[in-house]
Structures are given as structure tokens and as C-alpha cells.
Write a protein that binds this DNA or RNA. Structure first.
Lengths: 342, 342
DNA sequence: GCGATGCGAGAAAAGGGTTTCCCAACAGCT
DNA sequence: AGCTGTTGGGAAACCCTTTTCTCGCATCGC
């Protein structure tokens, strides 16, 4: 049974390397970092010793001296992770290639835990913080005079001087709508989540604007409700009564779209022949499992994370961007649910 | 708006505290850590100064001296995150309460990136590593003579001497089956994922064993196929022809179960009155969106993560567990799809 | 042959905190 | 008064690495 001390056969330090190469510590450091002037023979000797001992500089010591840690904190409240995970991975990707490591913190949407974690991150001297969430609704700032820069991704700080990066919901709504128009649909209904969500309002606005530009109006009322399949099923019923001639439905989420698809099928309307369907989120298991597979709007969550990371890196490097909300364009993912019937 | 230089107002060091309290650095340290003997008045004075200056010990400096970093690495290859995220959050939860911070690494299932990240983690002197995955299939060990302990969670090392923590698929299968038996079903079919997956085989074995104990056999063949809804739809057709008197179906995933539910409904079989249905995963958006809401088996992914974290903490503390595979019991989540008809 | 130059390498400090060791002062005892 | 014991606090070493400063020595030019 390996005790920690056996197992953790103390990593070699620069002292060990220096001793093995019969030089001073300072010289070893210079050889390893290519600083100063050294005889080639000396340098090679040190490098060989380092190689042999498997030497890796201790980043704690380096950071201590440089006053940097090359770490950032990633604070998420999204225990389910459906939206924030792609954002987190995008951020991790962008930061990781910059040799920055990421501390993960899950606040479970609890402000107390959040405060606690932010404190701990600051104690660890992270150089920046990214905050992600499950919704893009404005949330309280984690603090306006933190000693390090903060970027909000896939969530939005209520403080206008913070930097927030969110998907372009309005643009996504317009994108979906123009796609439906391009396939010849003109009587387009809308079923979406609760009106209290800005994302729902923005997507609806994208639809209305794009329709207005084509001289059209939505078919039936805009149906705000829940983000669930069940609401999709109910709303489709409502829509079929209010606007029986509807030939397309733009839905505020893929889950809603699945519910709508089910009711449409049971009402004898064929998708896409009679009614075309567009979802939102490009949540693949949902969108691909739908019958037929669902055309949907992809928010490019990974790109949101990457952009947030780049902004954070800039701010860390002393080039802070002005505060405000930045949006990342959405992308349309065409599938069978809007195929032209020919 | 704070400029970077204003913003990075050098955190207070113990020197500052000592100066403010008019004591030596050593005394300040003792006061802050409750070591040594100090007059109450002195201790209070130091604490007050620390409070006033917002002093937080620099963990780099502490770690440097103690030879510890209080960090672990979390390596995941599951870019989608559906399974590994709950595991990660469970692990983060257990580690976080132990004051250990977690470095997140996404390998995108690429062995090169994985190697790279493990190297970087070791360079950062993490005290342990947790590896998570999207599937519980055996995977290559990340290395058997790493200087720190490693625990695999929701994935399984091909090296038997590593510690792997995975869900109890067989027990989960048995649990689902006994639940169906308890509601009076006796002709139980099975639709699941590809046979090459050990998880699929184990779940099927759980079913077969539980049925055998009741003196029963599965209805029709065990239908191995894909993890998709589409396969669920196809397989339900097959099953209805092969065993028209089937009165329950246990499915290897919630997605499959949804496909099965759809075909059953279209074939005029009522769920749960004519045919009861059990899924696997307790993937809530899928299970709750199903009509009717799906009874399913929850693998307790968070618990897998927490258990992995506890094992890792034990190993770090010098109490390594023997290598091998540990399973976490699954839980049945009863919903309408198996409600007794009465 | 002598000063100037440059090369190569070591010594030392810095960075922030903990811990051990040591010392001064004071109280209590005979 | 002198000795012992206790208490409170300071000095310094240590962790590991980087960087600056210094210095010995050899070479070069004059």
C-alpha cells in the first residue's frame, strides 16, 4: 500500500536538477528558460539532467514570483447544464489553448454559495471570472468592484457596466422566420415560453419584425406559455382553432416544437407538407428524435463561451472592453420539418 | 470605470497586516492561525487589522510551503455532457466542501488532448485526478504510475488496478423488472441499445435474472439496436408482431422508451393500461415530455461523482482503496407509464 | 604588459506565508 | 536577592523559482 509519500515521490525541484548538473540553481534556471548567456555545454548538461529527473517547474512558485496564477474561475448555476455546458466547454477551449486553467464552481443557483465560491476563487488569486447561467435573464452582478475582470456568458448582469455575452435571440427569430418565408410559407404561428422571459420576447420580436418586412402578420396570437412539450401540445390545439389555415409554426424551443409536432400529426396535418415547423436550441436528442427531424435555430453556445473567454483574456491583458451586452449570431440548422414539399 | 491597474490593487499580504497591527510577520501568522501563545489583545489587534485590510492568505504561498495545492483535476471527454455533467457536479460538490478546488479539462475524447491535459494537471501539482466519460465502457487507463491517485467515474479503466465507479446497470434492470412484476405484468419485452455496450448487456441481464426468479421469460427476443428514439419506434413494431400479448416493455434508455411509446400509441395500445413502460436514465426532459410521463431508472449520477470524490480524497489522505469496479445502486422513479390500471 | 571588454556562472533577493527556535521580561518561590 | 519557570513575541529558515547583480577569468586591442 503506497503511502502518499511513497507515491508522491516528491517531484524533482530545480535544486535537484542543479545538483545533478553540478551548477548553481540560478544557472539551472537560466538554462531551462533560455535566459542569460551560458556555454552550450552547460546548457545541455542542465537540460539533460532535467530530462532525466522529469523536472517540471512548480507553477505555484512561478506564480508566486510573477504575481500571476494563469487560472480563471468558471461559475455556473446551471445544475442541469444543458445550456451552460457547451458554453463552459467553449470557454475552457479558448482559455486552455492560452495555457490558462479553469476552476469549476457550481453554485446551484444559490446566491450564498455563489458568494462563497467567488470568495474562494479570489483567495486563489484567479485572474478573472466567467459567470454562466441557464437563462439569459438579467441577474444580479456578482460585484462591481472585484479585483479581477468578470464576463457573463449565456446570462446577463443587471449592471450595465458589466460585460455580458448572450445569443442573438431576436436575430435567431428573424432567421427562422425568413427561412419559413423562403420555403413559401405565409401563415406563420408562434408558440413559445413565458412572456416574462426576455429570450421569449426577443425571439417573438424577431418573428414579428421579419414578417412585417414581408408585409405579413403572425397567424393567430403569439402564444406565450411554458417551455415544455405539454405546452406545445396545448398551444398547437389553440392555434389550429384560431388559425386553421396556418402553414408554419415557429417554436421558442425544440421541446415546444415536439409537442406541436405531435398535436399536428394527431390532427392529421402533415409536417412539413401541410405545416412547416422550426424549433429553437438545436438540442440534438430532441430535434433529431422528432418526427420528422426538426429544423431549428442553433445559438452557437460554444462560440458564446469562446467569445467570453477572449474578452476575459483581453481584460486580463489590460485591454478591457467597454461594458454592455454582446450578442452572438444564431445559425439555422435545416432538417426535414421545413423541407419544401415540391 | 476602474482601469486595470486600479482594479488590481494588490491584495493585502501578511506583511501589511503585521505592519498595521505593529507586530512581526511571524506573530501575525500565529494570530491568524491560532498557533503559538499570544496575548488576547495582540491576537485581536492582528485579526482586526486583517479584517480591515481584507487579508486572505495567498494559497500559492501556503501550498508552496506545505507541498500541497488543494486542487484536483477533472478530466472529461463528454462534450455533450448529458451523463458526465451530473457526475462532475457531484464530484465538485464533495470536493468543494473539503476546500479542494477543481480544474476542469475537456478532452473531446481525443487521446492526444487527454495526454496533454493530464501533463498540464500534473505540472500544476494537482493532488488527484477524476476521469469521467459519456459511456461506462472500459477505456484505456490514463497511466498506471502517475504520481497522484486517479479515480474513474461513469467510465471504466481497462486496467483492473484502477478504481472505477459506475452505475449498477444490472441492478437497475432488475429494479425495473421487479417494479413491473409488482404491478402485475408478466409478459415483459426489452428494447435496448447496441449489444456491444456492456451497459446494454448488464441491463438486459438484470431483466433476465429478475424474470427467472419469478419463473418467467422475456416476451419476444431481447431487442438490441441503437440508443435512439427511431430504434424504439422500429423495435416496438417488431415486438408487437413477435409477442402481441406483451403487457410491458423495459427500455434501455428514455429515448428508446419514447419511441416505443409512440409506436404503441399508434398501434392502439394504451400506456399504461395495455402496456406498461419503463425507461432508463431519468433524463427529465425526455421522461416528463413523454406521454404519459415515463417511469424510469435513475443512475444517481451525482452520487457516482460524490463517491468518486470521496475515494479520491481518501487516496490523497493516504488511505487508498483497492482497485476495481464499484457500482452505485440505481433508483426507480415511478411515473404514470406504469401506473396500475385499476 | 596593461587596461578594457565580454563571457560564463554563482550569490542573493524577492515573492507570501508557516514554523521552529530563541530570547527578553516578568512572576513566583525560597 | 537570586533562581526557576512561564509567557509573549521576534528572528530566521524554509518552500521553489526567477532575476538581477556581481565577480573571476580569459581574451582582445593598444
Amino acid at each position: 500500500m503506497a503511502t502518499p509519500s511513497e507515491r508522491a515521490a516528491k517531484p524533482a525541484t530545480i535544486r535537484d536538477v542543479a545538483a545533478a548538473a553540478a551548477v548553481s540553481i540560478g544557472t539551472a534556471s537560466k538554462a531551462l528558460n533560455g535566459r542569460g548567456r551560458l556555454r552550450d555545454e552547460t546548457r545541455d548538461r542542465v537540460l539533460a539532467a532535467a530530462e532525466r529527473l522529469g523536472f517540471r517547474p512548480n507553477p505555484l512558485a512561478q506564480g508566486l514570483l510573477a504575481g500571476r496564477t494563469y487560472t480563471v474561475g468558471l461559475v455556473t448555476g446551471d445544475s442541469y447544464g444543458r445550456f451552460s455546458i457547451p458554453v463552459m466547454l467553449g470557454a475552457e477551449d479558448a482559455l486552455g489553448s492560452g495555457q490558462i486553467s479553469v476552476f469549476l464552481c457550481d453554485t446551484r443557483d444559490d446566491p450564498i454559495r455563489e458568494r462563497h465560491y467567488v470568495d474562494r476563487l479570489l483567495a486563489r488569486r484567479v485572474e478573472g471570472v466567467i459567470v454562466t447561467g441557464r437563462r439569459t435573464e438579467p441577474r444580479p452582478s456578482i460585484g462591481r468592484d472585484l479585483p479581477v475582470p468578470v464576463v457573463y456568458a449565456m446570462t446577463r448582469s443587471a449592471d450595465e457596466s458589466d460585460i455580458s455575452i448572450i445569443p442573438d435571440d431576436e436575430g435567431g427569430g428573424a432567421l427562422a422566420t425568413r427561412h419559413l418565408l423562403a420555403t413559401g410559407r405565409t401563415r406563420i404561428g408562434h408558440v413559445t415560453g413565458p412572456e416574462r422571459f426576455q429570450a421569449a420576447r426577443d425571439r417573438a420580436r424577431g418573428l414579428s419584425t421579419a414578417l412585417a418586412q414581408a408585409g405579413l402578420e403572425p397567424a393567430g396570437e403569439l402564444l406565450f406559455g411554458q417551455w415544455s412539450e405539454e405546452w406545445g401540445r396545448q398551444a398547437a390545439d389553440i392555434l389550429l382553432h384560431a388559425a386553421p389555415d396556418v402553414d408554419a409554426v415557429f417554436c421558442g424551443s425544440d421541446q415546444i416544437a415536439r409537442g406541436v409536432a405531435e398535436t399536428l400529426r394527431e390532427a392529421g396535418r402533415r409536417v412539413p407538407d401541410d405545416v412547416a415547423l422550426v424549433g429553437f436550441d438545436n438540442w440534438e436528442p430532441m430535434a433529431l428524435g422528432c418526427r420528422p427531424p426538426l429544423t431549428t435555430v442553433d445559438m452557437n453556445l460554444g462560440e458564446i463561451g469562446r467569445l467570453a473567454a477572449r474578452h476575459l483574456l483581453d481584460a486580463i491583458a489590460g485591454r478591457p472592453a467597454p461594458g454592455g451586452v454582446l450578442t452572438v449570431p444564431a445559425t439555422l440548422v435545416p432538417r426535414a420539418s421545413t423541407r419544401r414539399s415540391t
